Computed example of a mutant assay.
Amino acid sequence: MTRHKEKQDDTCPVARSVNLVGDRWSLLLVRDAFDGTRRFSDFQRGLGIARSILADRLRNLVEAGIFEVRPASDGTAYQEYVLTPKGEMLFPVVVALRQWGERHLFAPEEAHSQLIDIESEKPLRLMQPVTQDDHIVPASATRVIKVAR
């Protein structure tokens, strides 16, 4: 599958973001990193992804500053892929996709994984856009101010 090259003059933040992390493998790599996966072989084993595709996606995510490569934390000769602060800012994106999937892609009583807060051991509240003063904003109450070309 051919990946679209980012257009530097694209003024849409969604388009630029999807170009970088919008393919299946990149998002699943970020998801697995949030779950504690760090090593190439562990990403490959967990996702069942081809080595060449995995190497390509990890290289792209490192070049984009989403992951950084570090020596293995256990002192072995291996390397680890660790989310950077920029990568960690993708957490709300992953949570929003998870919550949308839970709501729309599973039958009411169908079992699925669950994300919980470690301290309370309760599921997270539904992620929703809010104003600066914490009022929930529906899509119908927003508009995009586009850059004039």
Rank of each mutant, 00 (worst) to 15 (best):
V93M: 11
D134I: 08
L54Y: 01
P138A: 15
L29S: 01
L90Y: 11
R39M: 12
P13I: 11
F106H: 10
Y81M: 01
A55S: 14
I136S: 09
S120L: 05
A77S: 13
G101F: 01
A96Y: 04
I145D: 07
S140D: 12
F43L: 00
P13T: 08
L28K: 12
V130S: 06
P129V: 14
S41I: 11
V62R: 05
R125K: 15
L90D: 01
I145P: 01
L27P: 00
A55L: 06
Y81S: 03
I136G: 02
D56Y: 06
A139Y: 08
V21C: 03
R149H: 13
D23F: 03
S41H: 12
R39F: 01
L83H: 05
V18P: 01
P92S: 02
A148Y: 05
V95R: 08
P85T: 00
E80F: 02
L126K: 10
P108V: 05
T37M: 09
G46K: 09
T131R: 08
A111N: 06
E63M: 04
L29Y: 06
M1R: 13
G101N: 14
F106P: 04
T142E: 10
T142S: 14
R143V: 08
L47W: 05
P85N: 04
P85Y: 01
R98S: 07
R51L: 04
G48H: 02
G101T: 05
G87F: 03
A139H: 07
F40Y: 13
R45S: 10
E110A: 13
V82M: 06
V144R: 15
E102Q: 06
V144C: 11
V14Y: 06
L20F: 00
K5G: 12
D134P: 00
W100V: 03
L90H: 07
T142H: 01
D117A: 09
P108I: 06
P13V: 10
T142M: 15
Q79L: 12
A77P: 00
P123M: 03
K122F: 07
G46S: 08
A15M: 07
D32P: 00
S26I: 00
D32C: 11
L105P: 02
R103T: 07
V21P: 01
L126I: 12
S113N: 08
L126Q: 14
V69Y: 00
V18K: 06
P123L: 03
A77L: 12
T84L: 02
S41Q: 15
Q79T: 13
